[in-house]
Write a protein that binds this DNA or RNA. Structure first.
Lengths: 226, 226
DNA sequence: ACCTGAACACCGTTCAAGT
DNA sequence: ACCTGAACACCGTTCAAGT
């Protein structure tokens, strides 16, 4: 039945990373085990460890692989504000398509994928004339916001993988829970249940970016007038 | 040597959660294993599973325990803007003192601890007269920013636990790496190395909150004039 | 009801042995 | 140099058996 044929072509770090990304994308974070990789690549553990230091190294490389591709694909022509939105949305879409990245980005600080993100966000803010001394804080705030959304996204993908039903039904279930919360203890959540059910993640993400942009501009302008 | 005396008083869910928090705080996320808990509480696995559904349930409860305490301790008297800052800083300090919470908050969506956070942030924004229809997006953005910082914080704590040296030395090491980055590929990171070494996490966190507040006010005011 | 602790089904990682 | 796969040291969780 199952072919146990040994692979004929040589294994490589790139092949391993590619296979890892495919497992992560199709079957989720939990499905990526070293054993799953040996099966998919028709090889042994030692072969994997010959090309990759350990599982953490592999995840670092997989995340950077995806993020680096996204960050270089940014439209060059648009107006600065529009370009920042485009970069943010590209990141959001990539994280949406590969939710495991959301968890990975907060696993290891200053990993390659994060450096790519910081550099690109910094570039866009520079084009927006954010002054030098405000740069560090502005970029940090923006990236942390994106990482926060990314993390929540990964968490949502995780539960959706473990339960049946699509986004709409699982959102409806949460909204129903909110509606049943004690209005005395959680008046605002209780009231917001309907909005939660109907909200659009992508739209909401962009609304947050707009708040940031407005804040950055305001603080920047104030600094100019003083 | 090691006393193997069986515990005399009854075990309880509260005792288990308390012990878990202590292990997490003193020895880090990785140190919390079911086995470590049986040793600390002088009990067996079955006893733990009698009071707690599983490890995930335990972590949910531990995080909510800490967050709920923080969220109820908020100063009542201050001016709305000041109170929002106070809530944000309380959260930051709690996450700093218990960095494992940062990881936990993005493990399970809509967990109790997150509900507490959303409700409290919503309350502060309401006091700031954020209009109803802007509430959902504003609170979402703010909370996601906080969660992003929390996650990075947890990641930093994790590496600091696995390597020797305090915050200053590990920051210096990262800064040195940034300084060595190819200025052609990472011009902004390369330039920012010195700032990274000297930055204050808490101050930077608050700067991000200020950007948000400025953005929320600006967008709000614009909506009024239309 | 509450608890004990051996056993089970998994992990990531190592390493002697092969080509 | 590159690879195989048994073995090791761990996990979280279960469950028959005890009080």
């Amino acid at each position: 039945m199952a072919t146990k044929a040994r692979r004929t072509d040589a294994l490589s770090r790139e092949l391993i990373i590619e296979a890892a990304i495919q497992i992560l994308d199709t079957d989720g974070e939990d499905a990526l085990t070293l054993r799953a990789l040996t099966i998919r690549l028709s090889t042994g553990y030692g072969a994997l460890y010959h090309h990759v230091a350990n599982k953490s190294d592999l995840l670092l490389a997989a995340a950077d692989d995806v993020i680096a591709r996204v960050m270089t694909d940014v439209a060059e022509d648009a107006e600065p504000r529009e370009r920042l939105r485009a970069v943010a949305l590209s990141l959001f879409d990539a994280i949406n398509a590969h939710p495991w990245i959301g968890a990975q980005l907060s696993r290891e600080p200053w990993q390659p994928a994060l450096l790519e993100i910081y550099e690109s966000i910094g570039e866009q803010l520079e084009a927006l004339n954010v002054p030098e001394q405000a740069m560090f804080d502005s970029a940090g705030a923006l990236v942390n916001y994106i990482l926060g959304v990314a993390g929540q996204n990964a968490a949502n993908a995780r539960v959706r993988a473990h339960t049946e039903g699509d986004r709409t039904t699982s959102l409806a279930a949460i909204a129903a829970q909110w509606a049943q919360l004690d209005p005395g203890k959680y008046p605002r959540l209780h009231k917001t249940a309907a909005q939660l059910r109907e909200h659009d993640d992508r739209r909401q993400f962009l609304a947050g970016i707009e708040l940031f942009l407005a804040g950055i501009e305001t603080v920047h302008r104030k600094a100019e007038n003083h």
